[in-house]
């Protein structure tokens, strides 16, 4: 994977993912319907909406206008500041470039747009990737901005993600901060001894960091296992039970994909006339 040249060992979580506390600082606390929906409702609604969106042919452009309004409406109902949402969506950028290339370098029939010769198929495909990708990213940003990491975990559990995967996600959420703190301390120790990684020669050194990190992570895993064993662990995490979503919540949440589906159906009828 390629990304712009950066300090190779900047503090891993805080700089890269806005906020030191993984999955907690991403949340913008508000009192909105979106915030109060149970996580399993949110995840499923988002998933279904994205499926409908991806399944819609790009020349149904009227449908995409309505989808856009639905996404925007959700963001506004959740009272999320648009600039924060926009900033977090930047992760999409590499694919935006890809989408822009498509009309310019694409094959097939060419059309003149404002005096520039572009590929018709390229315009369609580029727009499709851009629009669907953007809606997908906006939905995910909306989810993580309204739902703490451990709630997302609970949502996955209720959606019947296999228990072992739920546990792995749970440990990941719990320990990513601990390990990133360790990484930060290792970096400070290194800097205070005047070390700076540069060029290809730094590879060996980065590998040593990765090795040390693995030892710490693995040993932590073993100690955690012992601590679990000491408290009677037999392969399952307790299901905390409470917090099942009522019909009302499901109705509120599934409104989004259901509306999208209706729009798709109506556009389909209208286009085939």
């Amino acid at each position: 994977m390629i990304r712009p040249n950066e300090d190779p060992l900047k503090h891993p979580i805080s700089d890269h993912h806005h906020g030191h506390d993984f999955g907690e600082r991403l949340v913008l606390h508000r009192h909105s319907i979106v915030h109060h929906l149970e996580p399993q409702v949110k995840i499923l609604a988002m998933f279904l909406f994205i499926i409908v969106c991806v399944a819609t042919p790009i020349h149904f452009w009227q449908a995409f206008v309505v989808y856009g309004l639905l996404v925007l409406g959700t963001i506004l109902i959740a009272q999320l500041p648009l600039n924060v949402v926009a900033r977090r969506s930047l992760i999409e950028l590499p694919f935006v470039f890809f989408a822009i290339m498509m009309p310019i370098f694409g094959s097939g029939e060419r059309v003149e747009v404002l005096g520039v010769s572009l590929s018709r198929l390229g315009i369609e495909s580029g727009a499709s990737i851009l629009v669907k990708g953007t809606f997908g990213v906006l939905c995910a940003v909306c989810l993580s901005a309204t739902t703490p990491a451990r709630e997302i975990l609970r949502g996955l559990e209720r959606l019947r993600l296999p228990n072992l995967l739920v546990q792995i996600v749970s440990f990941m959420i719990r320990y990513v901060n601990v390990v990133s703190d360790e990484m930060a301390r290792m970096k400070i120790a290194r800097l205070s001894r005047g070390f700076e990684a540069q060029g290809v020669r730094s590879w060996r050194f980065l590998a040593n960091v990765a090795g040390a990190l693995f030892i710490r992570s693995y040993e932590r895993g073993e100690r955690v296992y012992l601590a679990m064993l000491s408290r009677g662990y037999s392969g399952k995490l307790p299901d905390t039970g409470h917090g099942s979503a009522g019909i009302r919540q499901w109705a509120q949440g599934l409104l989004l994909p259901v509306l999208a589906l209706l729009v798709l159906a109506m556009t389909n009828i209208w286009m085939s006339r």
Binding site: F171, Y218, V224, G235, L237
Partner: peptide, 9 residues
């Protein structure tokens, strides 16, 4: 679970 979890981290 704990080992794969920490490997994920």
């Amino acid at each position: 679970a704990p080992l794969a979890g920490l490997v994920a981290v």
